[in-house]
Design a protein around this nucleic acid. Sequence first.
DNA 1: TATTGGATCGCC
DNA 2: GCGATCCAATAG
Length: 190
Amino acid sequence: MKLGREFYNRPTLKVAKELLGKYLVMNMEGKKLSGKIVETEAYRGLYDPASHAYGGMTPRNRIMFGEPGHAYVYFTYGMYYCLNVITERKGVPAAVLIRALEPMEGIEIMKRRRKREKPEDLTSGPGKLCQAMGINKTLNGADLVGKTIYLENRGEKAGKIVSTDRIGIDEGKEKKWRFYLKDNKYVSRK
DNA sequence: TATTGGATCGCC
DNA sequence: GCGATCCAATAG
């Protein structure tokens, strides 16, 4: 069952945890790709120094201030994209970064795009999964309650969840806002 | 207008 | 450990 707007319009930490075990589905150019979410990170707007929205709205982060249930895609390190889902009500800048997936459908397409054969090399990181799924800037602002990209509950139990500090973040280290499924081999940074 | 460094990745 | 590679943010 596709996740509706109301799922995203809730506290960010809750959404970040509940996204584990859900499926990310892409329908593009007649191809279907999907993967199970196994790792996320929460970013909470104005009061979180690590968030892109810290300090107010800019052209890049404006999607974070908008309606929940949309995609925030940004470009980083000159060559990678990262995918976030917007949470909390309109006007409150907050998002959950999708950090890793367990590939499910469309694995051959992912291998071709990633130029890698091992399943655990396809989507075990935020930049990798965007490359594998074909996510780029054209999807920035896309409605996740739609047809091309959406999240889905396939009735799986998440299992044990581990929380740690966020990767690549120096400020706000006391915040344990990274969540992943324990013992899952598709989590980044083994 | 110039400079700097990043919510990364893969190879050395 | 480090280079690739480019854009957003900030400083001037």
